[in-house]
Design a protein around this nucleic acid. Structure first.
Length: 276
DNA sequence: GGAGGTACCTGACAGC
DNA sequence: TGCTGTCAGGTACCTC
């Protein structure tokens, strides 16, 4: 499932494939993917040139000529690939951008959870979802002080708090489980119960884990592929996610899996300490 | 305003 | 073999 490292990898691999291309036609096979007006989306993108792709947290921002931006969230299974215009449609292809050179960008999403919308460039931070995002890991705004304030105002579990994109933007279920294991914190610990040293440790581990995951081109657990159709490499480094019942690599205790706020959560009950 | 629950979706898998 | 139920999970939206 694409989290921030996967979305960044998609951005890096997709950009050289489509930069400079001009859109000839847009086809919406499943219009519900479009969060803004679908008709407007189809019509306004014609003759627009792809200028660059930016990213904010898990959102891709496809910059176009004419001061337009396509805001795209891949959610669970969304993926882009470049094909020839007349390539047979896959069952799960939902949106197609046909370019003037005969190639086409296809958006494929098995669960149809992904969303995209067209906005004026510069207004993307007003989009529902983006407007409430907190700082990204490794950004100048993600300071220990800001993170401490973010945790202090939450009266819920640390697992739930790290999934809350207003505290830190870009983490998902996999990296939250991994960073809590790395920091030896029980997922049911209360977010506002940590000593300063533990918060600093958690903050630093979030930064280093995300940096490493981006270097490894993300994590492929289910179906995630980058724009070149390649899997990520970070799944080989996962210590807890997907390892239920296996011995903890730190203490040999079998890893447990529980539900925290409806999310599958794998952890070591021996070396991850609960803070209340 | 914050926290928790649910809907959206479909493929994979377990159990019968 | 085929059917049914459950699980996976990011976000929007609703209720309390």
């Amino acid at each position: 499932m694409p989290e921030m490292p996967e979305v960044e990898t998609v951005r890096r691999t997709l950009l050289p494939l489509i930069k400079g291309k001009t859109i000839k036609k847009v086809t919406l096979w499943y219009p519900k993917i479009i969060a803004s007006d679908p008709q407007e989306f189809e019509q306004q993108l014609v003759n627009k040139k792809i200028e660059t792709i930016d990213r904010y947290a898990k959102y891709l921002l496809i910059r176009l000529s004419g001061n337009l931006t396509v805001v795209s969230h891949l959610r669970m299974e969304g993926k882009y690939r470049l094909v020839k215009e007349n390539t047979k449609k896959d069952k799960h292809d939902h949106v197609q951008f046909v370019f003037t050179d005969g190639s086409a960008l296809r958006y494929n999403d098995v669960r149809k959870f992904g969303r995209m919308q067209l906005v004026k460039t510069g207004t993307e931070k007003e989009v529902t979802g983006i407007s409430k995002l907190g700082p990204e890991p490794n950004s100048p705004d993600f300071t220990v002080a800001a993170f401490t304030r973010g945790l202090a105002r939450k009266k819920k579990s640390i697992k739930n708090t790290l999934l809350d994109q207003s505290v830190v933007a870009g983490l998902g279920n996999i990296y939250v489980d991994e960073v809590l294991w790395e920091t030896k914190i029980h997922p049911l610990s209360m977010a506002n119960a940590f000593p300063k040293t533990k918060i600093k440790q958690l903050h630093d581990n979030i930064n280093s884990l995300i940096e490493l995951a981006i270097e490894e081109r993300g994590t492929t657990v289910h179906t995630y592929l980058d724009a070149n159709g390649k899997t990520g490499g970070f799944q080989e480094m996962l210590k807890v996610y997907g390892h239920k019942g296996e011995p903890c690599v730190r203490c040999d205790t079998p890893l447990e899996k529980i539900k925290v706020s409806g999310r599958g959560t794998t952890f070591c009950s021996h070396c991850q300490v609960i803070y209340k």
